[in-house]
Write a protein that binds this DNA or RNA. Sequence first.
DNA 1: ACTATTTAGTTGTCCGGTCAACTAAAATCT
DNA 2: AGATTTTAGTTGACCGGACAACTAAATAGT
Lengths: 157, 157
Amino acid sequence: MNDETPQDFNPQLAQLSGFLTYRISRLHQKLNSQATKILAAKVGVTLNQWRMIAFIGGAETVTASELVRYTAMDKGLVSRNVKSLIQDGLVASTGDGKDSRVHLLSLTPKGKKVFDLALPTMRKRQKQLQSNLSDDDVKRLRDMLDILELAAEDIDI
Amino acid sequence: MNDETPQDFNPQLAQLSGFLTYRISRLHQKLNSQATKILAAKVGVTLNQWRMIAFIGGAETVTASELVRYTAMDKGLVSRNVKSLIQDGLVASTGDGKDSRVHLLSLTPKGKKVFDLALPTMRKRQKQLQSNLSDDDVKRLRDMLDILELAAEDIDI
DNA sequence: ACTATTTAGTTGTCCGGTCAACTAAAATCT
DNA sequence: AGATTTTAGTTGACCGGACAACTAAATAGT
């Protein structure tokens, strides 16, 4: 794993690395790496698998396109992951009566077990992550992330 | 590009997607995608190339391992990107007298041009991103990102 | 001085992410 | 009803990132 933000920064470098985008990028990497390790050790699924299991398990039945919207993952990526989750016996797919394009996805008992095992672990992790932030901090952070997300959407430079 | 966070969330889904990590992940993706587009349109370099040019240009000479530390990119990725930057004539590499393993990297005049072209653009972007946040917000955000980054480093769940 | 360890950088491999093309079904338009 | 457009999902191709193995040079240990 990579080093910390070095303390011996020269001001020029510091200036550039101070960009919020750098920090967010670094944080994202570290969070992903951490989540991947936790999930591999405790549950035996990948991060993407967990993301999808989490949403399916949280809503009984879900379609692939809903997963795309909710997880912000790529269409193709979702499609392939659904396939592997079905092959692993974690997810079941049944045709929707009305629209023969869509498949309703749900957790199998095995998938539910994974969900029930992973959820408390991941909740605990979220709590630990937030343990050095006050509730007000977290609230404000959410707001700011939303604001940044909006700002990241329009390109007019 | 993916849709917005849907407004018609059911509470279960909302609960899960409320995890900070989801938001940070989504934000990161959007920021990356935005930066990639801006850089392609205005400067003609990739995001990774820009990251490296930014650090080299901000410090006169830099070694590859410094780039690894500062950008938090993978060793191998840095190595390959340095190679391509040299091939494109943007970066020059000279051997360090003392340590024959290290190469001192600096911008060529052509690389400096790219730097001088991209820097104001990227600064402007950062300003725009922050335009809906107060200075105090930004300060607090930085602090919180640092706190989260630290928390993301230890795994003990 | 001689071995062992650390550090700098390169390369190979594999997997995930992104983009685009494509099929098929549904919804819309007239 | 028939043509057009939109939506759901799959597949292929390509590139970037992650990780490990490797070379070579420098440093530390004895």
